[in-house]
Amino acid sequence: MTLTKVEERVTREQGSAGDQLLARARRGDLAALETLYRLHEGVVYDLARRICRRPEDAEEVLQETFIEVARSLRQYRGEGSLSGWIRTIAARKALARLRRERIRHADPLDDEAVLVDPAPGPTSAHRRLDLEAALHTLSANARAVLWLHDVEGYTHEEIAELAQRSVSFSKSHLARAHRRLRELIGERP
């Protein structure tokens, strides 16, 4: 058997096993749901962690996402990847959490603060942060838009729909997040 045929067979078998797993999970089989959880917990948590401010919030999002998956799996029609479908649920939940926080605490870190460019001068000249640290200086909304667009590959229209905001909200946050990041990591004069 050629390598290509082996690969085709493996893909076919994996696809078939995936279908069976999905069918079992749709019937409410907890073992199948746990397998889905184990397969996707890492990407879901990482996505939530990039959007949420606190690690405990990301854990909550992870939890809520899989409860939603268990509840709504029958609605997943196989259009697009299962992983993409699950990540969209996670993104929606993480963004909803940010919205609730903003309403509850009238969050000073939110929109307006993000939309102000960092002051020129000593701040950008002396603080050269690594990318991870620089990401944490962004507002939650700017970080969320940046991550969803540049890493997860969502369009501005999709982000606007997920965040229940406008397309220009997404575009402006992305541009400003880029400028701020590049200043903080010392790539801009």
């Binding site: 184990r38 890492g42 948590y45 990482d46 854990e59 992870l62 939890q63």
Partner: peptide, 8 residues
């Protein structure tokens, strides 16, 4: 990043 504990 990975979840710090098992939430399953």
């Amino acid at each position: 990043s990975s979840p710090p504990r098992d939430r399953w």
